[in-house]
Simulated assay, not measured.
Amino acid sequence: MKRLKLLVTLAKKGAIGEKVKITLRELADELGISPQSVLRLLDEMEKEGLVSKEVLGRKTYVEIDHEGLAFLESLCDAISEALYNGVIIGEVISGIGEGAYYVKQYAHLIREYLGFDPYLGTLNIRVLFPKTVFDALCGVRPVVLPGFTKDGRTFGDVKAYRIRINDIEGAIVVPSRTVHPPRIAEIIAPVYLREALNLKDGSRITLRVVKG
């Protein structure tokens, strides 16, 4: 665990791609161990190819080596796989009142590409986990509702990501020109979700992204 904390601390200090000056006392304070223990850890990690260090006079320079970077990357991948597994937790918020209009315009495409007749409105949630809605959707292939022109007005492509809320199917929709920040998810479904799930502003809700 201390090796991992030391690697992460060095990465935060910029010891990737170049050697950075460190002080044993500073690292010791951050890790909660003695400077002697920090030096011993650095020596052990250098022998294992995790870091390389150079001592010039009273100054010590350290860089994370290839093995150390590979270890951090594999750990990051494992954590991402465990955490970002298609689950989104959020709280219901009010939208800006334009959802019904746009769902009506795209209703024929939603029916054709997603297979359901949408309720004329959207449910907006503020994403609490993960950090943004895109973290949960990363690696998931969307269904693209193609743009079209109607009455002289152009409607752009919309990316739709299939989800389930309890036993209700639906989709997170991301317009090509979205006005929502990345922590807001806009959801369409074949039913009025607020009524079907007894939701109100502030209600917690869990979405599961349908993959494949």
Results as ranks from 00 to 15, higher is better:
80 S>D: 12
179 V>L: 10
28 A>V: 05
122 T>K: 03
145 L>P: 01
209 V>E: 03
56 L>E: 15
112 E>C: 01
86 G>K: 05
156 G>L: 11
103 V>G: 06
15 A>V: 00
81 E>I: 12
35 P>H: 06
167 D>E: 15
161 Y>W: 09
158 V>R: 00
192 Y>A: 10
10 L>N: 04
80 S>Q: 13
22 I>E: 06
154 T>W: 08
10 L>D: 03
28 A>L: 06
81 E>W: 12
11 A>W: 10
201 D>W: 01
51 V>D: 02
187 I>M: 03
157 D>G: 07
37 S>Y: 08
46 E>N: 12
8 V>I: 14
68 G>R: 00
28 A>D: 05
87 V>C: 08
46 E>M: 09
128 L>I: 15
206 T>F: 13
172 I>W: 01
98 E>F: 08
157 D>S: 09
160 A>S: 08
27 L>I: 07
166 N>D: 14
149 T>K: 13
147 G>S: 02
116 F>Y: 08
117 D>V: 11
161 Y>C: 08
45 M>H: 03
51 V>W: 00
25 R>Y: 09
168 I>S: 06
167 D>S: 12
52 S>G: 14
4 L>F: 14
7 L>W: 00
140 V>M: 10
197 L>R: 04
75 L>A: 15
184 I>Y: 01
18 E>P: 03
54 E>Y: 05
1 M>H: 10
127 V>G: 01
113 Y>K: 15
152 G>V: 10
144 V>G: 08
16 I>S: 00
115 G>Y: 02
72 L>W: 10
78 A>M: 15
159 K>L: 07
169 E>N: 06
36 Q>K: 11
147 G>A: 05
16 I>V: 15
207 L>N: 02
207 L>T: 04
167 D>W: 05
141 R>E: 14
113 Y>Q: 02
32 G>L: 03
111 R>V: 11
87 V>D: 07
92 V>A: 02
110 I>Y: 05
189 A>L: 02
191 V>Y: 07
138 C>F: 12
95 G>K: 00
77 D>Y: 10
56 L>M: 10
205 I>H: 02
115 G>E: 04
26 E>K: 13
5 K>V: 05
19 K>S: 11
103 V>L: 07
144 V>M: 07
172 I>C: 00
104 K>Q: 15
103 V>F: 09
63 E>Q: 13
95 G>F: 02
183 R>A: 12
17 G>F: 09
64 I>E: 05
53 K>C: 07
167 D>H: 11
87 V>W: 03
85 N>P: 06
36 Q>N: 15
152 G>F: 13
195 E>H: 06
1 M>R: 08
207 L>W: 04
184 I>C: 00
192 Y>W: 10
6 L>I: 07
127 V>L: 02
112 E>V: 00
9 T>I: 09
13 K>V: 00
16 I>N: 01
5 K>M: 12
141 R>L: 14
102 Y>F: 15
61 Y>D: 08
46 E>I: 06
173 V>S: 02
206 T>K: 11
109 L>M: 09
101 Y>M: 05
135 D>N: 15
94 S>C: 07
158 V>H: 03
136 A>F: 05
71 F>D: 06
205 I>Q: 02
111 R>L: 13
188 I>Q: 01
173 V>L: 06
54 E>H: 04
184 I>P: 02
41 L>I: 07
78 A>S: 15
162 R>S: 09
4 L>R: 13
66 H>R: 13
91 E>V: 15
78 A>C: 13
184 I>L: 09
102 Y>D: 04
78 A>G: 11
47 K>H: 11
143 V>M: 07
190 P>W: 06
166 N>R: 11
